[in-house]
Design a protein around this nucleic acid. Structure first.
Lengths: 228, 228
DNA sequence: AAAATGTTCTTTGTATACAAAGCTTAGTGC
DNA sequence: GCACTAAGCTTTGTATACAAAGAACATTTT
């Protein structure tokens, strides 16, 4: 934990600002797994009192990013490879559901949005900039979640993604085969257009699967490092 | 909201006691959807200060049971029929996943536990007491979640169940056809034993499906009532 | 009578104070 | 030297105090 800073711009209750600040810090790895979240310490660091810190911690807890033991305080949640596998297993099922729902509920409008997202993705791949590609990829999938028209599903999936983000898995995407990604995306679009649920689920499954091994590989390397 | 009472027995931080108290009250309908959760009010009612109340509210929020608007306070989350459908859709997918995992990971021991749970369920049905039957049914499914060996999955499912509980859907179970339930349970066991993933998923799907319509029916009736 | 304004009351947001639990460490006895 | 105990320190748990936002209501103005 080096230099946490609050973003005071936002006109939100401090608990929310603190929550976002800490969450980002955890996801970026600035706060390491197992690291203690001491209230006074964080309060001083962020220039607020303990009250909003405590509320933020309760939120992090429920989000699965912190673990607290009564009378002993909170820690950044640790995550093992098994935990990651568990998360991926669930994501696989839920991404399947999302694309299935999207398939059944896709409207003209949302399909247009998807086309736009697809074009943006193609442009991003063209540009070659990894950051842009990753963002365009996210957008593409977000359109699908939106089309699935099940907000709770969207929330759960984004929470699961968040938990993966902690492994900085997007770095892996450097090594990804973009042509393949493009191909899969267009297959998904195709399936959605034809409303072929089985097909689209299948593609989505392999689409995710392709990334899993690489991520796991990365985890294994990472876990050789930090231990506390 | 009539008579909230804290259970001071448990040696837990007050925030947790308050959290459980409020959660139960919400699930039982003692705190109605849309009802304001006013801090001082609750604090007086429960005989604690605002601090643990606020922390409990932050937790309820993340659990989806309360919604807060900054500077305006928290309310018990409302739930529409659409929300319920969304939840059920997800549960269906995740129960499918759970049973699939269980199928692949079932050991001798856990299968024995399942047998026990099945026998308990049969005994419960024999007894005819609805409360007992519901509990035995829960236990049976809990063994499966356990066997799935994916704790995060278990958490998500229990959160989803919680959200359904608010509709007091278990009352519906009065009308359920227990012979059918028993039949389905034994089919699930059979499938698990044979490790027939496809079969077991299919059964689990219909198992859930059978309950959905009845629940929705109930919701429709309920929603004619309370409005605020 | 309706709209606008101002005043008061209520309620949330945040900080702080104090109590009690748990750790640490130094000291004591064996 | 090792185990045990006691004192002090650190940190969490809870209550309370105060500030400021928002709601409600009355008053004025048109």
């Amino acid at each position: 934990m080096e230099d946490l800073k609050l973003n005071m711009e936002a006109f939100l209750p401090l608990r929310d600002v603190v929550f976002h600040t800490l969450r980002d810090a955890i996801l970026k790895g600035e706060l390491e797994p197992g690291e203690r979240l001491m209230e006074i310490h964080l309060a001083n660091k962020l220039g607020v009192s303990r009250t909003p810190i405590r509320e933020a911690i309760r939120m992090l807890e429920k989000e699965g990013l912190a673990v607290t033991i009564p009378r002993r305080g909170a820690q950044v949640a640790r995550m093992t490879e098994k935990d990651l596998e568990d998360v991926l297993e669930i994501r696989d099922a839920l991404d399947g559901l999302a694309v299935e729902c999207a398939c059944r509920r896709m409207t003209e409008e949302t399909f247009d949005k998807l086309k736009d997202a697809m074009n943006a993705f193609l442009a991003a791949v063209e540009s070659g900039d990894v950051r842009t590609i990753v963002e365009a990829d996210e957008s593409f999938h977000n359109v699908i979640y939106e089309a699935a028209d099940n907000p709770k599903l969207g929330n759960i999936i984004s929470n699961l993604k968040e938990q993966m983000y902690r492994f900085r898995y997007e770095y892996v995407k450097n090594d990804l085969d973009y042509t393949r990604l493009v191909e899969e995306h267009s297959q998904i679009m195709d399936g959605l257009k034809r409303q072929d649920v089985a097909y689209v689920k299948e593609i989505m499954h392999t689409h995710l699967d392709n990334q899993i091994e690489a991520v796991k590989e990365l985890i294994r390397k990472q876990s050789e490092g930090s231990r506390s």
